[in-house]
């Protein structure tokens, strides 16, 4: 490491931050671009069904659609409410 590198490394590189943010964003946007067109509607209807049985917030439910050469996966994740904190 030479003298100039020393001064450089003492600063956090904003380019590195930009790269990381872009990698995450672009991966996310690419996967949602390729998802089937029925997905938003399916997502909405599934949410309604789930809410009939379990009291959860919108944020407690996450959908993830993934696609590779061999298969497509639709992942549905529900974080159930913490029962031990229930008052009644």
């Amino acid at each position: 490491m030479n003298l100039l590198d020393y001064f450089r490394s003492s600063k956090i590189s904003t380019a590195a931050v930009a790269k990381e943010r872009l990698q995450i964003l672009v991966a996310h946007e690419r996967s949602s671009r390729n998802q089937p067109s029925y997905l938003p509607q399916l997502q909405k209807e599934l949410l309604e069904v789930i809410k009939k049985y379990i009291h959860v917030d919108q944020e407690a439910i996450s959908f993830n659609f993934e696609q590779d050469d061999h298969q497509e996966t639709l992942e549905l994740n529900i974080v159930l409410p913490d029962l031990s904190h229930k008052k009644n």
Partner: peptide, 17 residues
């Protein structure tokens, strides 16, 4: 500016796109 870490490098952009 790339050298100073202020700008995305060619490799960064190529890696992303």
């Amino acid at each position: 500016r790339v050298k100073l870490g202020e700008m995305l490098s060619v490799n960064d952009v190529q890696e992303i796109l």
